[in-house]
Design a protein around this nucleic acid. Sequence first.
DNA 1: CGTGGCTTTGTAAGCGCTTTCAATGGTGAA
DNA 2: TTCACCATTGAAAGCGCTTACAAAGCCACG
Lengths: 353, 353
Amino acid sequence: MSERPHAVTIYAVAERARVSIATVSRVLKGSSVVTESTRQKVLDAVQELEYTPSGAARSLAERRHHTLGLVLPELGGPYYAELLAGFETKAAELRQGVMLVIAKAEGHGGDAIRALATRVDGIAFLGRDVERVRRSGKKLVLIAADSLPGVEVISTENIAGARRLTEHLLAHGRTRLLFVGDPDAAHDVRERYEGFVLAHHDRGLEPAQPVLAPFRESDGQAVAERLIAGDLEADALVCGNDELALAIMARLLGAGVDVPRDIAVVGWDDVMTARYVRPGLTTVRQPVRDVGALAADRLFHLVTGSAKAPERHVLPTEVVIRGSCGCTRTPSADPEPDLYPIPTPHPSKVRSR
Amino acid sequence: MSERPHAVTIYAVAERARVSIATVSRVLKGSSVVTESTRQKVLDAVQELEYTPSGAARSLAERRHHTLGLVLPELGGPYYAELLAGFETKAAELRQGVMLVIAKAEGHGGDAIRALATRVDGIAFLGRDVERVRRSGKKLVLIAADSLPGVEVISTENIAGARRLTEHLLAHGRTRLLFVGDPDAAHDVRERYEGFVLAHHDRGLEPAQPVLAPFRESDGQAVAERLIAGDLEADALVCGNDELALAIMARLLGAGVDVPRDIAVVGWDDVMTARYVRPGLTTVRQPVRDVGALAADRLFHLVTGSAKAPERHVLPTEVVIRGSCGCTRTPSADPEPDLYPIPTPHPSKVRSR
DNA sequence: CGTGGCTTTGTAAGCGCTTTCAATGGTGAA
DNA sequence: TTCACCATTGAAAGCGCTTACAAAGCCACG
């Protein structure tokens, strides 16, 4: 029972197959040519001994981990899971492993990221404080981040989408719009607020200051309370994401406020709940999965050296019109929403399949 | 620019700090005692050279990867993300890395799992075909699986919860209950159906055969259509999970069927949407995050040898009563549900904090 | 039969760390 | 001043692979 870890090595296999370890290695990697007969001998030995190679030894010898790192700030909501799924799927396709670090959980002072850098060929990073990762000297891809000279960045269209969404509300005749979310919290929120501002300027209006709120449901509740109490005044809310929008909307509805008649509410992300609530939540859909896949793809090419100069990739988003913005529709179980694709100013270089 | 990967090694640091590599190693690991002055010299050298150690070399020397593997069948819905979050958080706490494999994406014939086994100390597995992982000879923890002699299993209470939930519906006077989901698809679904059956037997009733349906929303739509068409008859639906329940309910509602009056619907998982829809979805909440954390914890102890005999851990669930089962409540934004904790027959050995 | 030129296989030198064991130097007691 | 004894540091042997490079077969050919 107290076997040493990894008792069966390539030497055991070689001995069993009566060949040298070099030959075993060659068979396993399928690299250079090996006679069919010896090849079979080796494979048999591998089977019989239940040989599992040591990735560490291989990585050391090859100077490559065949593993990509992904750093996410958290894992709440469908956004990150979707991103991760895209990343993993593409990585698997490229035969690379995936190591995940959730930065928020970092109790040990950046330890986890440092440890990560130790076992991967490159890191895809989504979050704040890029420096932490940059210092590792690993190949790097930034997700949903601001441009950084010499660094590959992948993001989605935010400004034009938010502008369009806001314009839509304005076109409904709404006059007192509020942006809910913290532009300083994340780069994409900043961009969404930017779009919000631009849409106002388009009409010569003065946009209100953002109502700062983190992205959790409880924060939405709080904002709703302020609205109900009259502490905040608005006839339309542009929320930084769907969780926030849904929480606010639910609380408002519960207090007898009519959404969208009294207040219109729109979000961002198009989470599952958005199409199940009444009224359906008008929001913006992003190709999150594609973002993840693209990140893995770019990172891999950075690592293997087959990448061109670092680029900024902006994937397109689309406005999803449901009822919460004030559009009236025949109620149905899952209303087919109207879609407004948002063209990207710097069109994506890489398209999803 | 074309630096060889990992040009700066422990040797460079040693040279720069004018000490031996042994000393550098000692400083970095904080293992044995080193004079404060040399310690500082080393740390400075590390800083200046931006030294990032090679995890591969370390793993090889230590014969330990300090990494735990997690295999999930997919990443859809909040269930897996939550599980993963719990796993990652606990692993980080234990200073272990996390490698993730999504089995469904395995285009390359089990390749990914085999590759995973070469780079981790142990694997937590959720899915079908356990043998694939078992063959690797790695330490193993099974999640939401049937018991397997000699293997650590972590799951949640399903039978008693489903029995209670079904009984609740029966107590509402419902007589033609249908179970929606495929008991053969996953072990926990099988257990839920078992609870469904038991509740019927408790009252001397004969349970209906399960309505087979995978767990996607589209499958729910299909079931709803059959109900509407009269192809299927029921006054209450016990669904294998919330996605299914929500999809069915939405379709039913859209077709003018009154839920819960005409048909009651209950689910399993307590996803976010469950508390936003009207009527609120009655469902069962599982401590998914704890399951993930427990898996990481057990796996770690298995790896480090500090584990007792393999156990089966069953974490408790609780029935969450909202409106879709037929209970009438004053409507409010986020109705505080009634909770029915389900005691576990084999109480959990390890409690979440 | 001896040779040259392939193809297949083996030898051995790392890859960058950890860790045991030995060497070194500083300290206090005698 | 000398010596024993620690505390600190260094030397070197792996860890289990990959991969030049060399050796050994094998064949056809002269």
